[in-house]
Nucleic acid binder design. Sequence first.
RNA 1: GGCGACGUGGCCAAGUGGCUAAGGCGAUGGAUUGCAAAUCCAUUAUUCGUCGGUUCGAAUCCGACCGUCGCCUCCA
Length: 531
Amino acid sequence: MSTATAPQGGAAAAAPQPAAIRVYNTLSKTKEPLEPIRPGQIGMYLCGPTVYAESHIGHMVGPVIFDTIKRFLRYSGYQVTWVVNITDVDDKLIAKSRERKIPMGQIAIEMTADYLANLRELGVNQIDHLPRATDHMGEIIEFIRTLIEKGFAYEVDGDVFFEVAKDPDYGQLSNRTLESMLGDGGEAAGKKRASGDFALWKSARPEEPAWASPWGPGRPGWHIECSAMSHAILGETFDIHGGGLDLMFPHHENERAQSGCCHGAPMVKYWMHNGLMRAGEKGKVGGKSDRQAESDDVAGKISRSRGAGGLSQLIRRHTGERIRFFLLRTHYRSTIVYGEEGLEESGAALAAFYRFFERFAEVTGQSFYDLPAPAHRAEGSFDPAGEGVLVEAAGLRDKFLAAMDDDFNTALAISTLFDLLRAANRHLDQQGLGIGADRETPAVRTLYRLAGVLRDLTSVLGLFRQPPPDQPGRQADQGLTDGLMELLISLRKEARAQKDFATGDRIRDRLAELGVLLLDKKEGTFWERKP
RNA sequence: GGCGACGUGGCCAAGUGGCUAAGGCGAUGGAUUGCAAAUCCAUUAUUCGUCGGUUCGAAUCCGACCGUCGCCUCCA
């Protein structure tokens, strides 16, 4: 993850199969066919965080869906360059720095690390560039200078503002008129020509971090870093720009105005906005120790100011995979209502997949997680050769791909995964496949095929990349637990052999209370932790 | 006040003009089991906030109303 220039693809780029991918564009308010500016290549920019505090689950919605989108686009034959910015200069960072009495840069480093660690946990690993605003001061200043030269911006006492009235397209993205935006102009009201004008450069007050510029020491305003960095890495016009719905105005509207005016070309072809997450029940958002604790609202947008956070704890409690799955089960443009039960439910659903993977391993002696995942959708297709369950699987795979083609409908796509799972389990049941089965039979070959389809499709969603962590924090104890379980199971087996079911059941019930489930199968008794 | 989104079974959630309204969680019945768990099978919305309208036909389009939420100030 460098901030170097965009890779240029080269001749080796896979021939894109222009599958009929359609994307909902906020600008046109319709789904449009995805037609990249440069054939076969897609530049994608997602607004990342301002790193002044720990991230919360709401910050993960965009990264998870865009990570999935990138996986799917690559799978569909496109070469994708994905940029996520880190905004590490900002008024909030300055305020935080005063509060904690440590340098702004220190906070930015800490919070960036927190953000990246969370992304990693959720399987977001497709980002190509993570540019930081402070690393791009030169480009930012150059950008502002150009805007002044072209007459779109003006300087007043070391501050530089963008003059909104100069951009005829202003307001198009968020569907607003200039008249409707008459605010009080904020703290710089006296300096602005119009209250809707926004800061490109803010002069530094004493004690504030500052960079040298043609207008004196200062720092960039919010918005400009995204315009400058996306330009530096993706060029004047790029394909997809994403972010939360709350960024549509003013952030994206302003980015669009700056970039469009600076380059005389549209900044972005497709604007994509993900829905926001909402807290379903009061007090369940995280540390509710906050100033808003007295607020009685039952629901509301999750935000840092409401005391959300503790994402790493949430991950520890639920696993990153569960959270990723939870986010992907709702269409990305919908509001996701966050709640403990929703996460639990996702856990229960996921557990069924984990169980199948175990059955698969029992029969084949191979880990599902080691199965190769096709890199391209054409590689994943196969000939069902008239075999019922494979015909069904092939149909479900088509349905999955069609759902993803239609504006990345992960919720619908996931539903086919459950159908596939049921088909695979049914096959296992009907063929009587279990431990010790002959691995050279057609039935096992079919099982491989079915598991292969699941591997293929779930990889596209970034799911099941590795076995689920078995109750984090308990690993060290694993050997002992295994030994004890072996002992208990053999004791119970003896009791049952003597028809002493009372003792057998007592062992099982007691273990259940402790969160351990016993599964009596033909081949013997197995155990697992309650999901 | 301006702009916008949403309201689908007990809960979550797809579908946005026409096959029997996906899927998950849960529940119920059956197969299996000593009994369970897991798995499989079946059942679980004549109905999509309410009332009107357009249409041969609407959950899907239009209008009104009710309700929830978001943006308009910092926010993924």
